[in-house]
Amino acid sequence: MSERRQSLNRREFFSYISVAWIAFGAACANLASLAFRYSYPNVNFEPEMEFIAGTPDVYEEGVDERYKNGYGVWMVKLEGKLFALSNICTHLGCIPNWLPAELKFKCPCHGSGYYMSGINFEGPAPRPLERYAISLNAEGKIKVDKTKVYRWEKGQWDHPNSFLSV
């Protein structure tokens, strides 16, 4: 019995097992961090929440689509007011189209229709499109702030920040 040669004594065993556990733990942590990174997209197309939309004199009466694809906002000049209209349907969040011939916004998902002012009139939309905060900065340019939302059914469209008088 005493002849049996021990290849590993207790101390060596513990040093090996610690190295093994540390390596295993590091591999797991690495995998977890990779998995965590994987859950975020590589490219993010989130539109900016604030942008400068030129000067008030570039807009003609009616709906202006130049900021729709970049920022998801229609600039609408109507009856002496310029406002930034959200392009998210209030029914289920689709993106309506502006139909210039019919003078209305029409949602391709369930057929909600809105007037140029954003008021809903057909289809299932329960409330009008939302408007974003709009103001003039020191250089006289229009600043649209999408973090502030003005809703018609709460009587917020009279709020001075919800439109510009032009």
């Binding site: 197309f45 729709k68 694809n69 289920l92 689709c94 993106i95 391709p108 998902c109 369930h110 329960p126």
Partner: peptide
């Protein structure tokens, strides 16, 4: 590529959900 500010027209659900989508025309989501 997907674009959050644009939707195809008509935007149709997968075929087995088209009944639900048709239902949504008459109801709140």
């Amino acid at each position: 590529p997907a674009n959050p500010t644009w939707a195809p027209n008509p935007a149709k659900a997968p075929w087995y959900f088209l009944g639900l989508q048709e239902m949504l025309v008459y109801f709140d989501p």
